[in-house]
């Protein structure tokens, strides 16, 4: 029963026009990045810039892509899914249908969280795969050069990419969980997206003020840059662990609030 419900949820998300458009947009990012680097390296002149460093280093593209997208694009996509998941269903009156079926409210939240996770993992993986392909096509691949200056074999590079996919997905899901909590309080999906994106942007701005450094450890966005440690050799897990733990807290709090709200909600 539960697998059937989870399957239905993911299929429903995949059928949404905006999901398809969103995925299409996400896939464009690594392609554009690869293309940009390729054209930059074609100009030839200048010192050893980004292009020169990345020449023959196509496997960096997926990591670079995800790292960039995590700041805005991936939270946006997560917030859209979270918004449609509860607020959107409430708006269309379909939430009532699910509750009368019946799906218990706790299970409904689980289904929604699963859909969010599955789709996030799918989107991030898709971006990474397209990144690998585009990076290889435009820049070529001879292993992966790390930030520490060493070069990893292709296999090792792939392991790093998989690790990065998981880490980024987890960040995305945590943001989505908080967005789900917002989503459970309203019937307007746009409110959820606006609230989530505003929060992410405000967090990033707050992160710029040294005077607020006492606040920084609590902002989920503070954890984003540390994830790039995946590209060092050997990997220093300190920051990665901190970022993930912080995201985990957001996930728990978001899920908890959403559950509390959903259980007592009138529909």
């Amino acid at each position: 029963m539960i697998t059937r419900q989870l399957g239905s949820e993911v299929r429903w998300m995949l059928r949404r026009p905006r999901t398809i458009i969103g995925l299409f947009g996400l896939v464009l990012v690594p392609i554009i990045i690869s293309f940009g680097i390729w054209t930059a390296s074609d100009e030839g002149g200048g010192g050893p810039g980004l292009a020169a460093i990345l020449k023959g280093n196509g496997m960096v593209v997926p990591i670079f892509t995800l790292f960039l997208s995590l700041n805005l694009l991936l939270p946006l996509v997560a917030s859209i899914w979270a918004a449609d998941g509860l607020a959107g269903e409430a708006q269309h009156g379909t939430l009532r249908g699910l509750l009368v079926a019946p799906v218990s409210r706790v299970r409904l939240l689980f289904v929604k969280l699963f859909g969010l996770t599955a789709m996030s993992l799918f989107a991030v993986t898709l971006m990474a795969v397209v990144g690998i392909i585009a990076g290889t096509a435009f820049l070529g691949t001879d292993g992966m050069m790390t930030l520490s200056g060493t070069t990893l074999s292709t296999a090792e590079g792939l392991v790093r990419i998989v690790l990065f996919i998981l880490l980024v997905t987890f960040q995305m899901v945590s943001i989505g969980a908080v967005a789900l909590a917002v989503s459970s309080t309203t019937e307007h999906p746009l409110v959820v997206q606006a609230a989530t994106m505003t929060t992410i942007i405000v967090f990033q701005v707050l992160g710029q003020f040294p005077s607020l450094d006492w606040l920084h450890p609590f902002l989920i966005t503070t954890g984003f840059p540390g994830l790039i440690d995946v590209m060092r050799d050997p990997i220093p897990f300190g920051q990665i662990w901190d970022s993930t733990l912080l995201a985990g807290c957001y996930l728990l709090i978001g899920t908890g609030l959403a559950a509390m709200r959903l259980i007592t909600k009138d529909n």
């Binding site: 429903w12 269309h92 009156g93 379909t94 939430l95 009532r96 249908g97 009368v100 079926a101 019946p102």
Partner: peptide
């Protein structure tokens, strides 16, 4: 509720 079919406040479906 599994034994109950309901149509409340108009139909609710995905457009």
């Amino acid at each position: 509720l599994p034994h109950v079919g309901a149509l409340v406040e108009g139909p609710g479906f995905h457009p």
